[in-house]
Structure formats: structure tokens, C-alpha cells
Design a protein around this nucleic acid. Structure first.
Lengths: 190, 190
DNA sequence: TGATCCATGTAAGCCGTTACATGATTGG
DNA sequence: CCAATCATGTAACGGCTTACATGGATCA
């Protein structure tokens, strides 16, 4: 049960990255991956995390300790091992894959001339709301983070979101104006 | 063979979106999804596109015409139908999913203190190169696009990439300085 | 002469989501 | 009293990637 580790899956990498900072349960890893400062990497579900942790334990990249609790289900607390640390650092040392940006919103924007004004407006509004929420969340995270690298990446995120918001605010009216300008008969309207 | 369309998969949406602008073969759709101005939406492979087109033809959202060529394999040219247009516009009319940003690079950045300087430097350099390439590519696309909506989304992309680059240029030295500052024994070095 | 472009498709397999199963405790 | 939180896991299903199979034409 000790392969040469054969490179980690994204979820496994996430688990090790989080455990590098301290022990945690699967449940906590999930929360950190969604709300914490790892959400930019992968956004994993339980169905992915639990099996990944089991595999990591099998390969001895993590160890586990069971904590029986009264009233609550018992929790399995995982710790990263020396081998785990090495595997993580090795994975991070090889050239990182390209960043991925997928935007359903931009597709809507591209089709603005073919869509009703209301649809474009609500997509724009929803997007703005989300950027604002992310920004607020980011600033909250910035409040409670000491190490330089964390502040660096949070700053990165803030820079991107800010310019994003600026473009949106400056150019939303233009997109709304373009909406519905192509004659498409009557759309998906009922 | 005519279900109520039951909402489109991302790849199917991509196909319809491209076909909305004019007929194309599976091969061409792939190219446009990688190089063209749809790459921000999904980046599909042949193994995803061909079956998707077959399904769309089955649901009568597209039609196909076979063009026999001498010397070359014959090509299947697809056209979107009225039903296809309606299905696409209906899909785009419901609230778009959240934009996704996944960054292996930021994970490397977060672990900078635990990684050798050379690793951090090369990740930073690679990222810079990619942003520059994307920017150049974007400007090339901007040169040959008439409609307002296309220019809008290209401008959006340019704004994001520019601020991205600016942050990188301003803050790369700080990250390099932080590299290797945590004592990790000897890393993944052999 | 060897890589790349054109061009379609299938099959196996991975990786992950969703839904299900279970159930006490705490907070509104 | 109802919802959410804590907590782990399994099973089914889906969608996409990768590799395979095929092969002439063009370009360096």
C-alpha cells in the first residue's frame, strides 16, 4: 500500500493543502474549501472528499484519529504526515496548470442583442451582486490572516474583482442598450 | 425523438451558440471553442462535441448536411434550427450559473514560503507569459469583430487581464522574497 | 520524410456530483 | 417546532477526457 504516490488528484491536493496548516475532519475541509481561502482552487463535495481522505490514509500521506463524541457522531480527525508534506510540495513544485475561467455570464452578454432587456439586466445585476459579495467576503478573510502569502493571494483576488466591478459599472448601460436589438421574433417568452 | 429539450449540457449550449452565428462542422466548433471567442465558456474535446451534435440532431435542434470531399474525409456541416435557436435563447434566459475561477497558480503562491525560490519564480514567470499571450490573442480577436456585444466581452476580458498583469508586475518581487522562508527540511529535492 | 492539418467517430475509464441513509443538538 | 449544524459514508449516475482507429494532403 505504498505506491510512489503517482501524482495527486485536485481534491487530494486540496486536502493535503488544508491539512498542512493543521489537522481537520472531512467536514471541516469541505467548509474551508467553500468558505475559506482555498475556494479559488477547487470546490469539493463530500462525495469527493471522504473517499480522497481514505485513499490518502491508505497511501500514508495522512493519519487519522477517531474522536468519539457524546450526542454527536464521532469525528475522524486527519493529520498530514511527513510523506504527505513531501508529496504536496512535490506536486506544487511542478509547473502549475493554466488557470481556468468559465463564465456563463459572458455567454449571456455575447447574446445580449438576441435577448430581452430584462434578461440582460438581471444577469448584469446578479453578477454585480456576486462580485460585491465576494469582495466583502475577501475583506473579511483579509482581516484574520497573518502570513504574507495569504495576504498576497487575497490582494490578487481583490485586484481582479475590483477591476471587474469597475468595468461592469462603466459598461453595463452599453450592454443593456444593445439588448433586444436583433429581431428574433418572439423569444422564449410564454 | 422530441423531448421538451430538458435543458442543455454545457457542451450542447456551446454548439448551439456557435451554430447560431453560422453553420459549422464538429471540427470547426472545437477550434472555435479553443481559439475563438467562446473559449471563456467551455473548452470542449472531440469526445464531447461529436456525441453532443448527434444528440442535438436527434432532438431536431440542429440539422446536418454531409459534404463529400475528394482526398479529405467528408465533413458533416451542422445548421441550427428554429427550435435550436429557441432552446438556446431559453437556456440563456434563465439565471446564469456563477462564474468559475480555478487557479493552481494561486495555490502555489499560497505555499510560497514552503517552496524553493526557483519554483515560485518559474510559476510567476509562466503565469506572466500566459497572461501576455492571452492579451495578445484578445487584441487580435478585437481586430476582426464587428458586433457590439463581442467587443463588450472582449473588453471585459482585456480589463481583467490587464489588472491581473498589473498586480503581478507590482507584487511579484514580494512573493519571491517570501519564498523558501519557512524551514521545510529539504523539499521534494532528490 | 516527418509533423501538422483535416475529419469523424467509439470505448474505456476517471472524477466528481447528487441523492440517499441516519440522527442528536442547538438556535431562532 | 422547524431548520440548520454537526458528521460520515455509499451508490448511482453523468459528463468529459484520453486513447484508439483511420488516412490522405500539405508544408517545412
Amino acid at each position: 500500500m505504498e505506491h510512489p504516490a503517482e501524482s495527486l488528484s485536485p481534491v487530494a491536493t486540496l486536502c493535503l493543502a488544508i491539512l498542512h496548516h493543521g489537522e481537520a475532519t472531512g467536514y471541516e475541509i469541505k467548509k474551508l474549501s467553500v468558505e475559506g481561502d482555498f475556494s479559488y482552487f477547487v470546490d469539493a463535495s463530500f462525495g469527493a472528499i471522504y473517499p480522497a481522505l481514505a485513499r490518502l490514509a491508505n497511501e500514508e500521506l495522512v493519519t487519522q484519529r477517531e474522536e468519539v463524541q457524546s450526542g454527536r457522531p464521532s469525528r475522524k480527525v486527519y493529520q498530514i504526515t511527513e510523506r504527505g508534506r513531501r508529496a504536496l510540495l512535490a506536486a506544487l513544485s511542478e509547473p502549475p496548470g493554466a488557470d481556468v475561467y468559465r463564465s456563463p455570464f459572458l455567454l449571456v452578454a455575447k447574446f445580449a442583442p438576441h435577448l430581452p432587456r430584462a434578461v440582460v439586466e438581471s444577469a448584469l445585476g446578479e453578477r454585480r451582486r456576486r462580485i460585491l459579495a465576494d469582495l466583502a467576503h475577501l475583506e473579511e478573510l483579509e482581516g484574520r490572516h497573518g502570513d504574507a502569502a495569504s495576504r498576497w493571494i487575497l490582494g490578487y483576488g481583490r485586484a481582479c474583482l475590483s477591476s471587474d466591478l469597475a468595468y461592469l459599472d462603466a459598461n453595463a448601460p452599453a450592454l443593456v442598450a444593445a439588448a433586444g436589438s436583433a429581431g428574433d421574433g418572439r423569444l422564449a417568452a410564454e
